[in-house]
Nucleic acid binder design. Structure first.
Length: 421
RNA sequence: GUGGGUGUAGCUCAAUCGGCUAGAGUGCCAGGUUGUGGUCCUGGAGGUCAUGGGUUCGAUCCCCAUCACUCACCCCA
């Protein structure tokens, strides 16, 4: 226990951190390019916020939250996703009075108490983005196009983009009536969960994986075919825009999205090669959320993108991220007197911005060379009494093993030139 | 929450049909004459054989439980 990370958590080790940096950099750059600004929100919030912002009926709220009381008796919860916190921040800081739309992005960890498996962890990481104030399908198109470009920049191919509209509260309640009617004569023979869904949220029945239930819902009406005129034209406009940009998508009438606050557009980017948890990114429009959280009526759209899954997908596609460069030079020392000189020399180089490594273990010359080799430094040099006296050293290029006799004084200049190449 | 698989060195894995100090490769550390890496050679450190019970003269091996890891269901990033 003492020496084991909690279930569902992972260390991100030095050997792999460059992959994270790469996608983080790429995402931040792209967001900036599209005019989104970064926001950082707390890891925990008042529990109430998630009840409201994620939805009482969701699995997340019902059984997956890390909730605890602090010493002041407040109920707090580790964020299970990012949107609710961002919405809270929007309201708290009066962002309604900022230039509209308000375009935000974030890079967060999130926490859900779940049984873990491939691609699903208790602590995981998300890139996310929210745009507030724009109800137009152009906003939906912008968000989706940004994602599409993100994957393109990373070299990720064949993620499929699935698209659906789940309408607005008005057309959804009309549809729910229709669906109940359609199922009324057979609901008795369906699974227990579905019977529960029948009253609460009949749409979810269509999402049931039980074979028996599936067969019985095969010919059920699809919500997409029964949305109102406004929702329909919103959806059609979005599709048209995607086509204009050459972004390929598939309409999937089955996407429901677990979170209660979604309206109209829902979408996901799905991978087929990283296991059952193939949803790399899921998002959609949530025009009712801001109001539900006590803010001004404000349309919104956003997504969450699973970073672990993104990295898994990249790995499965054989996309390598080059490891960062090794330090430029290793400077070895023979004897304690030389050690002091090397110390001073390194300090000088480091202040000049040159990356150099020296011995801190009092090792033999041979060991120091082996060490330099393992570090992969481009150059090495060894300083002893002779060098200090003559002011000249052998600068060794580790790639070809050749040494050049140079003056100690010229070292910094030479190395700085190397850095520029 | 339900079900399956797996737990031996930092890593990848052996072995003992139940029997002496549990092995290899790799990695790590150090040496291979006095001041120079990669290959090679030698040596060293490193294991409560996941944990706790049980069966047995004797368990790393058999049985049970627990825990962890892992995959799938549910659901989602």
């Amino acid at each position: 226990m003492l020496t084991q990370a909690p279930k569902g958590t992972n260390d991100i080790l030095p050997d792999e951190i460059h992959r994270w940096h790469r996608v983080e950099r790429e995402f931040a750059a792209l967001c900036a390019q599209f005019g989104y600004r970064e926001i950082r929100i707390p890891v925990f919030e008042h529990t109430e916020l998630f009840h409201r912002g994620v939805g009482e009926t969701t699995d997340i709220v019902q059984k997956e939250m890390y909730t605890f009381d602090d010493k002041g008796g407040r109920s707090l919860t580790l964020r299970p996703e990012g949107t609710a916190g961002v919405v809270r921040s929007y309201i708290e800081h009066g962002m309604a009075s900022l230039v509209q739309p308000v375009k935000l992005y974030y890079n967060i960890s999130a926490y859900r108490y779940e049984k873990m498996q491939k691609g699903r962890y208790r602590e995981f990481h998300q890139f996310g983005m929210e745009m507030f104030g724009a109800a137009d399908p152009a906003a939906d198109a912008e968000i989706i196009s940004l994602l599409s470009l993100f994957f393109e920049r990373l070299g990720i191919g064949n993620l499929s983009l699935n698209l659906n509209s789940i309408g607005c509260p008005t057309c959804r309640s009309a549809y729910n009536l229709l669906l109940r009617e359609h199922l009324s004569d057979r609901i008795g023979s369906m699974c227990e969960t579905c019977q529960g869904r029948y009253e609460r949220n009949p749409m979810r029945i269509l999402d049931c994986k039980e074979d028996g239930c599936r067969a019985k819902t095969k010919d059920a009406p699809a919500l997409l075919d029964h949305i109102c005129e406004d929702c329909r034209s919103h959806f059609d406009a979005l599709c048209a825009k995607l086509e204009t940009m050459g972004i390929r998508y598939a309409i999937d009438k089955g996407i429901v999205r677990g979170l209660d606050y979604y309206t109209r557009t829902v979408f996901e980017f799905v991978s087929r090669n990283i296991g059952t948890q193939g949803t790399v990114c899921g998002g959609g429009r949530y025009d009712g959320l801001m109001e539900a959280c006590g803010g001004p009526k404000t349309p919104g759209i956003g997504f969450g993108l699973g970073v672990e899954r993104l990295l898994m997908e990249m790995e499965s596609q054989g996309l390598e991220t080059p490891a960062p460069e090794a330090p430029l030079i290793y400077i070895g020392a023979i004897g304690t007197a030389a050690g002091d000189t090397v110390e001073a020399l390194c300090w000088d180089l480091r202040r000049k911005g040159i990356s150099c490594i020296k011995d801190v273990m009092g090792r033999s010359v041979k060991s120091q060379m082996k060490y330099a080799d393992k570090l992969g430094t481009r150059y090495t040099m060894i300083l002893g009494d002779n060098e200090i006296e003559s002011g000249r050293v052998a600068l060794r290029d580790m790639k070809n093993g050749e040494s050049k006799d140079i003056s100690l004084e010229s070292l910094a200049d030479r190395l700085q030139k190397c850095c520029r190449d």
